[in-house]
Design a protein around this nucleic acid. Sequence first.
DNA 1: GGAGACATGCTGTGGCCGTG
DNA 2: CACGGCCACAGCATGTCTCC
Length: 249
Amino acid sequence: MDSVPLGDFRAFGRFLDGGMFGVGSSSVASLILDGESGELVRAPVKLGKKGGAGAADLRSAMALKSHSEAERRRRERINGHLMTLRRMTPCTDKLDKAGLLAEVINHIKNLKSDAIEISKFCTIPSDTDELRVEVDGEGANNSSFSVKASFCCDDRPELLADLKHTLESLQLKTISAEISSLGGRVKFVFVMTGEGVNNDLERHLFTTSIHQALKSVLDRASCTDFLPNACFSGKRRRISPFESSSSSS
DNA sequence: GGAGACATGCTGTGGCCGTG
DNA sequence: CACGGCCACAGCATGTCTCC
C-alpha cells in the first residue's frame, strides 16, 4: 500500500490532482491514518452497490474536486482584488490583509474629505442628491432679480432635455450655467433672472416655483428606473472570472 | 544560534443557502 | 436536484519574535 508522510500530504494531493488516478480525488476522505506507522495511507476504494468504483463515488469525487477548485478560484479572486487595493493604496507593502483593509478604509475616508473640501471651491457633483434655489441678487431697476439654482443627481440621457424644458416653461432667462459630471453624477449650477418681480411675495413665489419645478426633475432623475444598478435584485450575483480580473487590471 | 511561541497565510473540506 | 458561492474550520507552512 502506498504511504504518504504527513508533511508531504499536500504534495500528494497535487499528485492526485495531476490526474494520476483518473478522477483525481484530493479528498482527505480517500486517506486513512495508518495506526502503526502514523502516516496517511491511501484508503482502499469503496465498493459501490454494483461493485467497483460506484457511479456515486465517482460523482462525489468529481464534486469534491470541483468544489476545491472553485474555492481556490474564489481565493484567487479575493487575493487579486486585495493586491489591486495594495497597489492603489500607498504605504501598504508591509501590511497584512487586515492592516491593508484598515489602511484602505482610512485612505477612502481621506479621499472623501478631500473631495468635500475641493467641492467647496469647484462645481463637483456630490454623492447625495441636492437641490438649492437662492436669491443671487437684485436687478438695477428693482423689477428683476436673479436666482442661483444648484442641482445634483444621477446622470441620465434625458436629464439635460428635461431640465431645459422645465426652465423654458418657467420663462426664465439664463445668465450662466455650469455643468459638471463625475462618476455617473452630474451637477448643474444656473443663474437665472425673472422679469416683473416687484415685491417680496412675488420673489418668494418665483423662487418657490423654480424649486418645485426642479424638484420634479430631481424626482424623475432619482426614479430607480434610471439607476444603472437598478438591475440588481436580492440575488447574489454570479461573477465570471473574466469580469473579476478585468477590474483589477 | 537554536528552540519554542505566536501570527499570518494558504489549502482542502463540509455545510449551508440561493438559484435555475 | 445540481450547481455555484460563501463561510467556518482544521491542518500545515512560513516568518517573526522572544527567551535561553
